[in-house]
Amino acid sequence: MSIKINRYKCGYCGACVGVCPGGALELVETWVEVNDCCTSCGLCAKICPVGAIEVNK
């Protein structure tokens, strides 16, 4: 996993899941999970309405 989700900021809206091209993210009840398909493309961090995601490139 190469993104970091600040769960204190995240409002589990799932916008990041909708733009993830590889399907690496999943909105489970009230948290977002990341799997190994993540390529650190950064779209999730861009779309997040509150800036809860950081990408480690």
């Binding site: 909708g18 733009v19 309405p49």
Partner: peptide, 10 residues
């Protein structure tokens, strides 16, 4: 999957 230009972030 949506591109960022295909989604309103709110």
């Amino acid at each position: 999957s949506l591109k960022p230009a295909d989604m309103e972030t709110c």
